[in-house]
Amino acid sequence: MDTETGTRKKEIVVPGTVLNRDQPDLKAGFGTFREKDDVMAMIIGLKDVRSNYINVIPLSGRYIPQFKKNDLVIGVVEDTNPSSWMVDINSPYPGLLHVNDAPWRVNFGETQKYLDVGDVVLAKVESVNTIKKVMITMKERGLKKLDSGHVIEVVPTKVPRIIGKKGSMIALIKRFTDVRIFVGQNGRIWLQGELDRVELAERAIRMIERYAHMPGLTDEMERFLEAQGDHVPDFTDSEKRQYRGDPDRGPGDERAGSMGGSGTGPREEDIDSELEEGPIDGRSGQARSDEPGRKRQDGARTDAANRPATPGEEELNDDEIKELIDDIVSEYDE
């Protein structure tokens, strides 16, 4: 049964696959549609059953901003207007940023002074209406123009894996490389730091993107990152080919993919959590609890995991890191 924690080998399904042959009473969740008595997959993805719903976790697809998700996104300004900017958010739907949602006081016609075409911003999706007109905002704490650094694009469905359970994977990378990182739900990632560290962080992210489905990923990551002190392995042929998008996506993508989740710890959707209720698209909107069975020795870890940090950034001490690594290792190793 798919509802068991730790079921990593989820079945890959394709559009048209009937999902409820053995369990006819299950309801149509995310990524599925119903035709008479059959619940069928509408996208290629991983079959996931929880409570009474069958969902399909996407393995592929572009980033589509969703109503009420308030995703953290990294955008590139593509047009300026007298009282707004049009921002490319790596989606078929551009994000409109109105001056009222900008962190500055902008006079009419002076938008270009603050943001011009080609500028990069850290923003949040504020609203998405029924015809998919998207408004973004920069008025929240931590949102800003990104003045320097390196922006890369990853397959949006890999974002939850790159962030990791409760932000653990990205925290691991940040810890070892000392690089500032913001991960946008729209598949864009911003990095800033010393050049060779940024290079290392990017390679680590590409590794996750490529090998996300494999067990023992975290050990590999640790080895790779630790080696930075003595000898960083040379770029491999495939790194030189610079995978754009990911040719090697695999199963085990246990997050809601591009359709859910965000950068902050408490809102991370943990599919294996036994207390998870309802379909992944958040229709039930129930609160998350920590998994049972995880001993909580010190309050510090709980705080670290659940503190609403600045989007994408968390400061963790060494003990916290070690516990996180233990968690990751136990989760991903078969």
Binding site: V14, P15, G16, G31, F33, M40, M42, I43, I44, G45, P58, L59, S60, G61, R62, T157
Partner: peptide
Amino acid sequence: LADAGIPMRGL
């Protein structure tokens, strides 16, 4: 189209 993650009724 399936590879691209486009939602479809089937192949």
